[in-house]
Nucleic acid binder design. Structure first.
Lengths: 181, 181
DNA sequence: ACAGTCGGTTCGTTGATTGAACCCTTGGAG
DNA sequence: CTCCAAGGGTTCAATCAACGAACCGACTGT
């Protein structure tokens, strides 16, 4: 969050969670990671976030064990930022918060549809598959962006790469998306 | 969150939700509202938040339709800040985030136990009652603070008022708690 | 008349966010 | 060999929010 990035007096799990994931931009970074974004530059162009802030947030999320750096090339060594198991467990808070925002903080209805990959059923507001009757982990979720009525969609390479039905957590390929324009 | 309280480029429900509930302190205020805190001064002493920030957050949460002011006395007129229906629907995001924090951002295990009032069963990590097999709304949740092993608990009147099993959303009575010391 | 409560506002200080500019390593083109 | 571009950062001044202590204003009970 903002000034004073912690809540020292609060002996409370929520305060601890917010110290990790509650700063400005952190949740959006994690959401993008669920979408399959993994590279510094892809986060940068898709979020319109200042470079210095992105550097700082990625570092603290790695330190907190939400993301981990995995090298994708040598010389110079470059890293993907991928969700850890702990990070993937943030799916429910993030999904339910996004669905809440869709219901109460937007005009213009649903922008992204989330469904259970195995059976095609749309998830309910709690992240449950009505057909299977259980909470669906992000690995089994397919997302699909829906044409927004209000704002025109973003046109950066990352935004183009995540149109169309996609499995969550599959790495995006910005080069392929750039060629397809 | 922090500076620049919005995410203008993000046409995304999560960004909209974070503009409403993602600023620093906002989620903790909402959590306290679930605990039954309703008065300016009670939020103040329980959260250790600067007065000016609390004023500002309460105003924006009211403007966003998460809280509403309901008068509890005349001359001078004084207001309770109570969760609206939209605010109460933030239960799942807040509960799941708190449970995540308990698992991944704390040493020292569970601090608050949440159970289904009707059947006494503890809720699982997704807010579901294992016995009843459904998501439990906050009106049916009973909370109980557990003695922390690491930090000594807070000693303000609000903290004292919420020890012991309590139904969520029932207004706290700080006067009664103050006398009981 | 006087202290006390509740809910705010004001204000100087501290510190995070922003955005633009600069930097470093390496690979590839000419 | 030189030059340039890409990826991933760092630096820096300006801005703006958070902090916390002091002040304020309406009322009440004594």
């Amino acid at each position: 969050m903002a000034l004073g990035t912690d809540y020292p007096q609060q002996d409370c799990s929520l305060a601890r969670a917010l110290e990790v994931a509650g700063e400005r931009w952190s949740m959006l970074i994690i959401r993008d990671a669920f979408y399959g974004v993994r590279r510094f530059n892809d986060f940068l162009v898709h979020l319109d976030i200042p470079r210095a802030v992105l550097t700082s947030r990625l570092q603290s999320l790695v330190a907190a064990g939400v993301l981990e750096k995995v090298p994708y090339q040598q010389s110079p060594v470059r890293y993907d930022y991928a969700l850890t198991e702990a990070g993937r467990e943030l799916w429910l808070p993030i999904y339910t918060l996004a669905r809440w925002g869709e219901r109460h903080a937007r005009a213009g209805g649903q922008l992204t549809r989330y469904s259970h990959t195995d059976c095609g059923e749309q998830l309910d507001h709690s992240g449950c598959c009505p057909r299977c009757g259980r909470i669906v982990p992000p690995e089994e979720v397919t997302m699909q962006r829906i044409a927004g009525t209000t704002v025109k969609p973003r046109q950066d390479p990352v935004a183009r790469a995540i149109v169309g039905p996609r499995r969550l957590l599959t790495p995006i390929d910005t080069e392929a998306a750039a060629e397809k324009v």
